[in-house]
Computed example of a mutant assay.
Amino acid sequence: MKIISSPLELKEYLKGENNSIGFQGSKSIGFVPTMGALHQGHISLIKKAKEQNELVVVSIFLNPTQFLKGEDLDKYPKKDEADKKICKLSGVDVLFFPHVEDIYGTDEVTLSAPNVRGYVLEGNSRPSHFNGVLTVVMKLLNIVTPTRAYFGKKDAQQLNLISLMVKQLFMNTQIVPVDTVRESDGLALSSRNVYLSSKERVEALKVSSSLRAASSMVGKNILDSKEIVKEMRKSLGDLEIFYVEVLNLDFEQLLHVEIGNTIILVEVRVGTTRLLDNIWL
């Protein structure tokens, strides 16, 4: 596995990899952007990238522009050496490990999230968060120029906005959604789960329990969004709820679940930790 920190060096390396195969055409590149503290969810993204591409690039970059003032940038879990080992054992070809100054300069060109989709749900309580997400993802996609880039469905709003950016800016990368990976007890994997105390972790299970309740209702042909949200809020108990929503794949509110075109999303705070989860129906 090759480790590179310079964007220009990475671009030259990938260009050389493609030139080395002569007239056979370009190698397909699968790209997995991460902020580090890798877990089985990230490994599932890498595995999918390996299945579908000839070359796999993973980036580890803790992006400062998507953290708002007072958020957990300084205490976000960092496991650099463990992350490198995970990437190597997972068969990653290139690990892109840039510093902040490699990605950002002074007097930056800014990229803004959509005025509607970027400021609802998570964007409502974290205004400008998605500006930072989209900016760094566009930078990374322009550096790697991958055939396909892989993102988890757990961060559904992020996935939706990145897909929209790629489409609207006519970028030559296919965005591939990958299913959420869960612990055996149902808790969705997240790098921020390490913040949870043992008591808080038990409380956090109410999130996946609420989604199972919603899925059970749909299975009984109870499709009314208000009824589903009411039952989910009951399952969440006294957790601090940011939102519980039933939306279509364009992130528009639905009065009734439409099978094949619905995401049920929830965000709560457990202790000091924000937790996101969802189901796609």
Rank of each mutant, 00 (worst) to 15 (best):
Y119C: 07
H99A: 13
K153F: 08
L205Y: 06
E81C: 01
A149H: 03
E258H: 11
D93F: 02
S209H: 13
F151L: 08
K234F: 09
E183C: 03
Q66A: 03
A213H: 10
L196Y: 10
I29A: 14
Q52M: 13
E12N: 15
F31V: 04
L247A: 13
T135L: 10
G105M: 02
D107N: 15
F242W: 12
Y150K: 02
T106D: 12
E258I: 11
E240G: 01
S209K: 15
D72W: 01
T34V: 00
V270E: 12
V56I: 04
D238A: 09
A188W: 05
V246D: 11
L239F: 10
G70W: 06
D250C: 01
F251H: 04
D72H: 03
I43F: 06
L89H: 10
V257W: 04
S198F: 09
K84N: 04
T34H: 00
S216L: 11
P127R: 00
H39N: 13
E71V: 00
G70L: 04
L8G: 14
L38H: 09
C87V: 01
L189C: 08
L14K: 08
G271R: 07
K85S: 12
S20E: 11
E252M: 09
H129T: 00
F96S: 02
P146M: 05
G152V: 00
